[in-house]
C-alpha cells in the first residue's frame, strides 16, 4: 500500500510536469504573444516595449524554465490584464468554483445513489428502465442549455431561485443542479451495477441467512461494497466538474476560476490561462489520489494482510 502510494505520487509529479510543459506550449501557439497582447492598434514600438517588459524577447527555453522555477515556489506569474499576481487571482476565485463543484457533487450523489439502488433492487422492471432512461437523458443534456432552461423556468417563471450571481447559497443551487447532471449518469450506472453485483453475491446470501433486516442487507452489507467504486469515481468526477465548470460559470455569471480563464482567453492573458490549466490538472491528479485513499479506507483488502 505504501509503495503503491509512492508510485502514485511519482506519476502525479510527472503528470503535473507534462501538463506544465503542454500549458506552456499551448500559450505560445499563437506565435508572437507580444503582438496579440498589444492589440491591433499598437505601434511597433509598443510591441517592442511589451516584449521587453514581459521578458518575451528571451529564448523560449529560458522563459519556460523561468516559469517552471517560479511555479515550483508557488509564483504563477503576473496577469497582463488584471495587473495582479496570478496566484492571488486564482486564490480569490477558487472558493466559488470549489463551492460550485462540491454542490454539484453532493447533488449528483444524492440523486445517483438512491436511483442506482432502486434500479438494482428492481432490476429488469419498469422502474429500472426509467432509471436507465434518466441516465441516458442526463448524458444527452447540453449543460449550458439546461442552465438557460432552468433560469427561465425556476428563475423567471416560478421565481424560486436567483438567476445569476453569487450572493447567497441559493445562487449555487441551479448551477449545482446543472453541473450534477454531467456526473449523474455515470454515478447512477455504477451504483446500479455495483448493487446488482453485490446483491447476487454469496455474502448477501449469508446476510439473508442470518435473518438480517432488509434495510441492513441493502444499506449495510450490499451498499458498502457497491460504494467502493462509486466513491472513487465520484472523486474523479469532481475533478471533471471543476474542469467543466467554465461553461456553467459563464452561463450563471459566477466569477470563479473558470470565468477567470474565460475572460483571460478573451484578453490573451496567457499567464492566467496556463496557470489555470495547471491548477485544474493538479487538482484532478490530487483527487485521483484521494480516490485511491478512499478506496483503501472502504476496502480493507487494499490495506494489506
Amino acid at each position: 500500500m505504501f509503495n503503491f502510494l509512492i508510485r502514485r505520487l511519482v506519476v502525479a509529479v510527472l503528470v503535473a510536469a507534462t501538463v506544465m510543459t503542454l500549458a506552456f506550449i499551448l500559450t505560445r501557439l499563437s506565435g508572437d504573444l507580444a503582438t496579440s497582447i498589444a492589440g491591433p492598434n499598437a505601434t511597433q514600438a509598443d510591441i517592442e516595449a511589451i516584449r521587453q517588459a514581459y521578458g518575451l524577447d528571451r529564448p523560449v527555453l529560458a522563459q519556460f524554465f523561468d516559469w517552471v522555477g517560479r511555479a515550483l515556489t508557488g509564483d504563477l506569474g503576473e496577469s497582463y490584464f488584471f495587473k495582479a499576481r496570478v496566484s492571488t487571482l486564482i486564490a480569490e476565485r477558487m472558493p466559488i468554483t470549489l463551492t460550485l463543484g462540491l454542490t454539484g457533487l453532493v447533488i449528483a450523489l444524492v440523486v445517483s445513489l438512491p436511483l442506482g439502488i432502486l434500479a438494482a433492487v428492481r432490476e429488469n422492471t419498469g422502474l429500472d428502465r426509467v432509471v436507465q432512461m434518466v441516465a441516458l437523458f442526463g448524458q444527452a443534456m447540453p449543460s449550458f442549455w439546461l442552465g438557460l432552461i432552468l433560469m427561465i423556468t425556476l428563475g423567471l417563471n416560478l421565481g424560486w431561485l436567483p438567476i445569476s450571481g453569487t450572493g447567497s447559497w441559493q445562487h449555487f443551487v441551479m448551477p449545482g443542479i446543472v453541473l450534477a447532471f454531467s456526473a449523474i449518469p455515470a454515478l447512477t450506472r455504477l451504483t446500479r451495477a455495483g448493487m446488482i453485483q453485490a446483491m447476487g453475491s454469496d455474502y448477501i446470501r449469508t446476510a439473508r441467512a442470518k435473518g438480517l433486516s432488509r434495510a441492513s442487507i441493502l444499506l449495510k452489507h450490499a451498499l458498502r461494497n457497491a460504494a467502493i467504486p462509486v466513491v472513487a469515481i465520484a472523486a474523479v468526477q469532481l475533478g471533471f466538474m471543476l474542469g467543466g465548470s467554465i461553461v456553467i460559470e459563464q452561463v450563471f455569471a459566477l466569477h470563479g476560476v473558470g470565468f477567470l480563464a474565460w475572460e483571460s482567453i478573451g484578453k490573451n492573458d496567457f499567464p492566467v490561462v496556463q496557470a489555470v490549466v495547471l491548477v485544474l490538472a493538479v487538482i484532478y491528479v490530487a483527487l485521483t489520489m484521494v480516490a485511491d485513499l478512499m478506496n483503501a479506507v472502504l476496502d480493507p483488502r487494499l490495506r494489506g494482510p
Binding site: 455474502y203 441467512a209 435473518g211 438480517l212
Partner: peptide, 25 residues
Amino acid sequence: GMAKLRGNAMAMIFQEPMTSLNPAY
C-alpha cells in the same frame, strides 16, 4: 416472519467460505 427464524432457530452454512463473509466488515 421467516427472517426472525433465520440465523436464530435455524441457521445455515455454505459451501464457499471464501466468499460467504462480507469482505468489508
